[in-house]
Design a protein around this nucleic acid. Structure first.
Length: 804
DNA sequence: CTACAACCAGTTTTT
DNA sequence: CTGGTTGTAG
């Protein structure tokens, strides 16, 4: 135990501070000139929340009401009044981003550099606790943390071992089920009867086996980190008591997103002194699918009798119209704690609404609108690209925007896309590092034995497995045994010998504390991994090499490889700050907690937003969560919020038409401005018009809706855009493209002769060179000569003029 | 054992 | 449509 932890423990054991800290606080402040700076620019509610130190406090903080400021001030107040030493304070967040921001702001407000409060995500703090008490959970303190990928591979093994078809019962699904159990603190053997039939009835058993396997591997998945800590607290009173004395003041951010385990975790820790301050907004609970229970925040006063509830209702972020529109939408939800947000600022611009013919048009319009907003348009000030963001419901929506922005050369940045540490090459490299640090990391070994290709296929790997299992060795040791006894012959045997040899050397480098950057470089070089990508001719290969360089560079910021691996296990995000002004593109979930002067909210269609899945699986509750997401979206905007929808969208390559989102109808009319499309583009008329033309019952609903009426008022029929849409609607019958191709496919058999021009879906245009039975040898213009089954190519004339 | 063509299934959201 | 997985030929 490090020194200052020891000191904290001593301090925690000292007599508790007076029940109400106010008197002490006042005295301390008097003795400290300027100590109240952090309080002076708070409003009454914020100050109340920041200075009520003892007992339970629920800070109900609406969007943009300055909760982080209040939270930071509270920590500063605890420290500056001498109520608590920094390390007696525990502050928990959900995301690393939030933790980082809080750390920065606390450092500024308190002037502390060393001896900061315990501040981090539930997961990060749990790891610290679990490393100390690993043995109480049946682990060693150097346990590995598995990410989703590892988890799924492990589960796949389990499922296959049980002779279950992984096609019908995908490991991903089991991972989801187990995760949801862990989120609710359900351990193997305690799965409720109502869920015993999960995963075709094998769920509970596979769960138990998986946990056993984790233990054998000395590993944890994400869910375990929290659940193990809770288990330890529940089973070891002395340990719990120690931490209760230790963490005398607890703060929790985004309380509305806590799940059952996190709730238990908090209740156990705060159970003694009850000094817990939870900050949250029931209207922003958007993680129900991940086990979050809004009920936790709704129930707070019952859970902590005598709790003080402080409402932060003054919004400093958005203009009047935007705030009112958001409030109007969220008002449709039931069972809210209820807040009335208000702003002292200006009315500002109304929320803008526009409909489009299809998703491409939506992307196109948005791109042009962004460009004109840069110059200043529609009575608004000019906006910089950094001031604008597009917030989508699902990440696949991003593609249309990316495509469009690339063609018009509009700089953009994607937040939360494919993450750096989840990329193939990074994960491979990490597996090598993991093995160098812990030679018995079997999962890492499996990953890299044959990457790059070493001629060690399924058969060779099975031999290694057998050798390891029957001698009770790690896979690496098993491999070493096989090498020594020369049981794998030929090229594979030699390559394995070299790998085993290399791993031995690299491990030695780690043990002897050679420069970890050099070690990493040596590993990647000697393993042939760098060469592997250098030899690869695919277009993405250079990028991958670049990423590997970046990885090595990132290492420089750490003491050693172990430290780096620990960091990466928990912090999977990739916040590179690149230069240049860019529009931000991200999901609504990723946008929580952020703000932008101008926000675009595309894809407001029933089925997409609210998502079909949320409606199917969550019913009314599902829709309410989606509505909260809509609320989060609108409230991200400071000055300008633009909502859009498209009448047609391509999903899985099939055209589908849809209704405008029900949330659009919930926008209070007086705060919305309906944009009429400028000439070229389709507007509301396009969407409403095409659908009202067919006479299904849903279309009637739309025709009667306010959206439709607004479109009529805007006289879209008179616009050139509308006429264009009409023309186009006739041009493109739904589903035409895919089917016309299929028809040609079927008749294409054997109808070719050498010299014919043909078209292939993947390889493009080419010329038939020879025919052998049902196969053609085709010399493609771009992709070289290939043998192709005749039914996969079309005559070249037919392929070019498929409509759209 | 590898490489390549054919087939198929999937799209929320994340620590 | 796209990417990941499966089946087959070399």
């Amino acid at each position: 135990m490090p020194m200052d932890d020891e000191a904290a423990f001593e301090a925690a054991a000292a007599p508790a501070a007076p029940r109400r800290g106010d008197g002490l606080a006042a005295r301390a402040m008097g003795a400290m000139p300027g100590a109240t700076d952090y309080l002076s620019d708070l409003n009454d509610a914020q100050r109340d929340a920041a200075t009520t130190l003892e007992g339970a406090v629920l800070m109900l903080a609406g969007a943009g009401t300055g909760k982080t400021k209040a939270l930071t001030a509270r920590i500063a107040h605890l420290v500056r009044t001498g109520t608590a030493r920094p390390n007696e304070i525990l502050a928990v967040t959900f995301t690393n981003k939030a933790a980082r921001e809080m750390k920065d702001r606390v450092a500024r407000a308190t002037g502390l550099v060393e001896g900061m409060p315990w501040l981090g995500t539930f997961h990060a703090i749990s790891v610290k606790l679990l490393r100390r008490h690993a043995e109480l959970a049946g682990l060693k303190s150097n346990f590995t943390i598995l990410d989703t990928d590892d988890t799924i591979r492990l589960l796949r093994q389990g499922i296959e071992a049980a002779n279950i078809d992984t096609k019908r019962w995908p490991p991903r699904q089991l991972a989801g089920i187990i995760d949801s159990w862990k989120n609710r603190a359900i351990r193997p053997g305690a799965v409720p009867a109502s869920e015993a039939d999960a995963f075709n009835g094998h769920g509970p058993r596979l769960y138990a086996e998986y946990q056993q396997r984790l233990r054998d591997l000395n590993a944890c998945d994400f869910g375990d980190l929290l659940l193990h800590v809770v288990t330890i607290f529940q089973n070891h009173e002395d340990v719990l008591a120690q931490y209760r004395r230790w963490f005398r003041y607890i703060l929790v951010d985004e309380y509305q997103d806590t799940n059952a385990v996190q709730y238990l975790w908090l209740r156990l820790l705060a159970g003694g002194h009850g000094n817990i301050c939870c900050v949250g907004d029931d209207d922003q609970s958007i993680y129900g699918w991940r086990g979050a229970e809004v009920g936790n925040i709704l129930r707070f006063e019952k859970d902590f009798p005598g709790a003080k509830v402080v409402r932060l209702e003054q919004n400093y972020r958005s203009t009047g119209h935007i705030l009112a529109a958001a409030s109007g939408v969220i008002a449709a939800n039931k069972g809210r704690l209820g807040k009335t947000l208000w702003t002292a600022g200006e009315e500002g611009h109304k929320v803008r609404l526009i409909g489009h013919w299809d998703g491409d048009e939506e992307a196109r319009w948005t791109g042009e609108e962004i460009e004109s907003m840069q110059r200043g348009t529609r009575g608004m000030r000019p906006f910089g690209l950094d001031e604008m963001a597009i917030l989508v419901r699902a990440s696949h929506q991003m593609r249309a925007f990316e495509d469009r922005f690339l063609t018009i050369g509009l700089p953009y940045r994607v937040i939360g896309g494919p993450r750096f540490y989840e990329r193939l090459e990074i994960r491979d490299a990490m597996a090598y590092f993991r093995l160098a640090v812990s030679p018995d990391d079997d999962l890492a070994f499996e990953r890299i034995v044959n990457t790059p290709k070493r001629g060690l296929g399924e058969k060779a790997q099975q031999k290694i497995q057998v050798a390891a299992r029957s001698n009770d060795l790690s896979l690496l040791e098993g491999a070493r045994l096989l090498v020594r006894t020369k049981q794998i012959g030929g090229k594979g045997g030699a390559a394995l010998a070299e790998l085993v040899d290399g791993l031995g050397r690299w491990h030695l480098m780690v043990r002897e504390e050679a420069s970890h950057v050099e070690t990493a470089e040596t590993i990647l070089e000697e393993a042939g991994y760098i060469a592997h990508w250098q030899n690869e001719k695919t277009p993405e290969a250079p990028g991958r090499l670049e990423n590997l360089k970046e990885l090595v560079k990132a290492l420089e910021n750490f003491e050693n490889l172990q430290g780096f691996l620990e960091h990466v296990a928990l912090i999977m995000d990739n916040e590179q700050e690149e230069g240049g002004e860019k529009v931000t593109l991200m999901t609504l979930h990723a946008a929580k907690g952020l703000e932008f002067p101008a926000v675009f909210l595309p894809g407001w269609e029933d089925g997409l937003f609210p998502s079909q899945r949320a409606m199917d699986e969550g019913g009314l509750k599902g829709v309410e969560e989606e509505r909260r997401l809509a609320y989060v979206g609108i409230t991200r905007a400071e000055e300008c919020c633009t909502i859009s929808f498209a009448a047609n969208r391509r999903t899985y390559g099939q055209w589908q038409s849809s209704m405008p989102s029900r949330f659009i109808d919930e926008l209070p009319e007086e705060h919305v401005e309906v944009l009429t499309p400028p000439g070229l583009y389709g507007g509301m008329g396009a969407a409403g018009g095409s659908m009202a033309a067919s006479a299904s019952p849903e279309m009637q609903t739309l025709a009667e809706s306010r959206i439709w009426q607004r479109a009529q008022e805007a006289d879209v029929y008179a616009s050139p855009g509308w006429r264009r849409m009409q023309a186009r609607a006739g041009e493109r019958p739904a589903r035409a493209p895919a089917e016309s191709r299929t028809t040609i496919d079927m008749t294409a058999d054997s109808a070719f002769t050498a010299g014919d021009r043909v078209f292939h879906k993947k390889f493009g245009y080419g010329e038939v060179r020879a025919i052998e039975g049902d196969k053609l040898e085709v010399a493609f213009d771009k992709a070289g000569t290939k043998k192709i089954v005749a039914r996969f190519v079309l005559p070249a004339e037919g392929a070019g003029d498929v409509p759209f």
